[in-house]
């Protein structure tokens, strides 16, 4: 099954929920207030959030008016257009050496995503080292080591409770010595309102910038697709602390819609780069705005 197939399979369940409501909305006879209300409701039910939903609906209203559209079916194409525009970004290709740091709140799937990313890079013929900088959660390093074995990559780890920045330092030294292309940094889950932990994250970033200034350094937020509007705060606060480059949306194989990505996109202009669609090691795929929206609407 190709990437597209997997994405479709992953999103199919998402579609079941959101698009059922959208389907009802678009089965309206006229583009009246009732139509827009039910459209807004469908978006709200998909975690798109009040602000973004209102913006999307208003935008649609305007375009429908400008282009003198009468039929709900044509409005549907317009909606797709708006949705694609709101999640589509030009992302600069990676250069190597590359450092990818994953951050996020607890339980979103950072460690799993690291394992999957390791596989993605090794498949492209890149050498990979993983820094197990989650030294807080019980057995996090052990979990990462299992993933490391599955992906066939080195894992640099210290004991539980060690300084995460020191783990990253060692991983960088190891990468320098061996000429490794990609350094993946797993960090401990942290609730974004814990000040000290956010400072710790900044420190890790400083170490990377100091030790490997020539590297392409990407900082991603891992976001659980079931997250609600709190996802916007997460993106906001992590962005403020470490200037995020994008989002990895995990657990899209459930019934959750990941609609909060729209809200984040509208408010913060952060691109989604990968989506997680299953538990197997190759279940992480690059994000495609058209596929995402096509499958959604």
């Amino acid at each position: 099954m190709g990437f597209f197939g997997k994405m479709l399979e992953g999103i199919r369940k998402t579609k079941d929920n959101l698009s059922k409501k959208l389907y009802y909305a678009f089965s309206a006879r006229a583009l009246d207030d009732e139509f827009y209300d039910s459209l807004e409701e469908a978006l709200l039910a998909g975690d798109v959030g009040v602000a973004a939903s209102t913006e999307i609906v208003d935008d649609l209203r305007n375009r429908v008016y400008e282009r003198r559209i009468k039929k709900p079916d044509d409005a549907k194409e317009l909606l797709k257009e708006i949705l694609v525009e709101s999640v589509e970004y030009e992302v600069e290709p990676y250069s190597y050496p590359l450092v990818v740091l994953l951050s996020g709140v607890n339980g979103v799937g950072k460690t799993t995503a690291i394992g999957k990313l390791a596989r993605l890079f090794t498949e492209q013929g890149k050498s990979v080292v993983v820094a197990a900088a989650d030294t807080f959660r019980a057995a996090a390093s052990e979990q990462l080591e299992v993933w490391g074995k599955r992906a066939g990559v080195r894992v640099v780890r210290h004991n539980e409770g060690a300084d995460p920045a020191a783990v990253v330092f060692d991983a960088i030294s190891s990468a320098k010595a061996k000429g490794t292309d990609v350094i993946l940094v797993d960090t401990a889950g942290r609730l974004h309102n814990k000040k000290n932990l956010m400072e710790e994250l900044k420190k890790i970033c400083r170490v990377v910038e100091r030790e490997l200034p020539e590297a392409d350094f990407r900082k991603f937020l891992v976001l659980d697709a079931t997250t609600g509007q709190n996802g916007v705060q997460q993106a906001e606060v992590f962005s403020e602390a470490i200037d995020l480059d994008g989002i990895i949306l995990t657990k899209l194989d459930g019934t959750a819609k990941g609609g909060v990505v729209m809200a984040i996109s509208v408010e913060l202009e952060l691109p989604v780069l990968y989506v997680g669609v299953g538990e197997k090691i190759d279940d992480l795929i690059p994000f495609d705005a058209h596929d995402f929206v096509d499958a959604l609407v």
């Binding site: 929920n17 709200l44 659980d224 079931t226 609600g228 509007q229 709190n230 459930g254 959750a256 819609k257």
Partner: peptide
């Protein structure tokens, strides 16, 4: 249940 769950909490 994670308190940060969105609309899907109900389905789950």
């Amino acid at each position: 249940v994670d308190s940060m769950t969105g609309q899907d909490a109900v389905t789950v």
